[in-house]
């Protein structure tokens, strides 16, 4: 297990370096932020001063060297737009995204496992067919469209829920509900398929011959064996949410890392772009490590 953690950490560190190099130079291809930040009628002197202050006048390679040097001292630079350390801006937003992702994925996982397992247990029955239909629609529905329709329906016409922003519990309901739909649909299908093959296995026959009741038969004997592919897909979906659900966060004005990333790219706030990519990359790395560890916990035959 410790070997796994060490190997993965080294591998992720290497890809993180590659990511920093790539994003650093690619973001600078978008142009000089000076033009965006200063008013159109700013004098040449003001522009030069701005460039000097943020180091944009130096050769690109020198800028990169300085950035890496600061990074080695855990200094991610300042946000130009907000005049705060970039890492604080990012972590503030990331906390929002993390909460959103955690709540959504917990709901998705619990619901998908219950629905998918029951559908598989009575495969071909009414509940199975209903679950398959609903999950298929969920997995294929465009979420930005659902988001807008939901705002029109629940916020504008019925006026039950706020349209956007944060503040109360009510503000969370629509974003979570919209983010829930697609991963739920996908995961129900995966749980159902995996449970179907596990239910037909020999050890389930043994359990039935022992007189095990249906509830433990499904949720104790079969589910744990069926979980490995489910966890893999769950990880994919969670990674997408951690990256910031850019579209959904933008529609609901949710101050998460997805919205922050898109805003700072448009504003050429390079330090914030780099910091948010690093934070989400590290979060996804940690999550993948947890998934690998979950494999070993669920199946004693897997040893690292």
């Amino acid at each position: 297990m410790i070997r796994l953690i060490r190997q993965r950490t080294i591998a992720s560190f290497i890809s993180l370096i590659g990511l920093i190099v790539l994003v650093f130079f690619l973001s600078r291809l978008t142009g000089d932020p000076t033009d965006l930040f200063l008013p159109i009628d700013a004098t040449q002197e003001m522009r030069d001063q701005f460039r000097r202050l943020h180091g944009f006048d130096r050769p690109l390679i020198e800028q990169f060297g300085a950035y890496v040097w600061d990074l080695l001292h855990l200094d991610f630079g300042d946000s130009i737009r907000r005049a705060q350390p970039a890492i604080w801006v990012v972590l503030n937003a990331f906390v929002w995204t993390l909460q959103l992702a955690l709540i959504t994925m917990t709901l998705v996982t619990v619901c998908a496992i219950v629905v998918g397992s029951l559908a598989a247990f009575r495969a071909g029955g009414f509940f199975d067919r209903a679950a398959s239909l609903v999950s298929l629609i969920g997995a294929s529905a465009p979420d930005f469209w659902i988001a807008i329709v939901a705002i029109v329906l629940f916020s504008v016409q019925l006026a039950w829920l706020p349209t956007s922003g944060t503040g109360t519990v009510l503000h969370w309901i629509l974003p979570i509900a919209v983010l829930f739909i697609r991963p739920f649909g996908l995961l129900v299908q995966v749980v159902r398929g995996s449970m179907l093959s596990a239910l037909s296995s020999a050890y389930v026959k043994t359990a039935r011959a022992k007189g095990v009741k249906n509830f433990p038969l499904i949720f104790v004997h079969t589910l744990r064996n069926a979980m490995l592919p489910v966890i893999t897909v769950m990880g994919d979906q969670a990674a997408a949410l951690l990256n910031g659900a850019v579209v959904i966060e933008s529609i609901f004005g949710f101050p998460g890392v997805g919205k922050l990333m898109i805003d700072s790219i448009l504003q050429r706030d390079f330090n914030v772009v780099l910091a948010s990519i690093m934070v989400t990359a590290i979060a996804i790395f940690i999550m993948n490590l947890l998934i690998d560890m979950a494999y070993a916990v669920l199946d004693p035959r897997i040893r690292y």
């Binding site: 020999a202 050890y203 043994t206 064996n225 199946d299 035959r301």
Partner: peptide
């Protein structure tokens, strides 16, 4: 086949 008839994860 006692291997496949015993639950591998318990």
């Amino acid at each position: 086949d006692p291997l496949s008839h015993l639950n591998p994860v318990y």
